[in-house]
């Protein structure tokens, strides 16, 4: 899986590409968890090209959400596909994120 991070003046856009299964989530975790530093502002998780998310991936999303809540920032989940939306729903996480 691939992660592209673009820091803009008002937000950080994180493009997640591929399958975020458990090994992939572990691999990209340090990169994504480092974004906690930016959690004072807006972090956009662009999921247009994310095809799958595992529990480990959800945990990373939650870690970022927690950091944002503590620091007064926000996480926006953008363009999730129906399968991932369904995972959010099945686990009760759908209303925790601002979904665009």
């Amino acid at each position: 899986m691939e992660v592209n991070i673009t820091k803009q003046s008002k937000e950080v856009v994180v493009c997640l590409i591929g399958r975020m299964d458990t090994p992939a989530a572990q691999e990209v975790a340090p990169q994504l968890e480092a974004l906690e530093e930016d959690a004072r502002g807006t972090i956009v998780l662009d999921c247009k090209d994310l095809t799958y998310i595992s529990s480990s991936g959800l945990r990373i999303f939650l870690t970022l959400r927690k950091a944002a809540a503590e620091k007064g920032g926000k996480i926006i989940v953008r363009s999730i596909n129906d399968e991932i939306r369904s995972v959010f729903m099945m686990t009760g996480f759908l209303n925790l994120f601002e979904i665009e």
Binding site: S55, L58, T91, G92, L96
Partner: peptide, 9 residues
């Protein structure tokens, strides 16, 4: 599924 995390909601 192998989802092993849920929210309290």
């Amino acid at each position: 599924t192998d989802l092993d995390i849920i929210s309290s909601s």
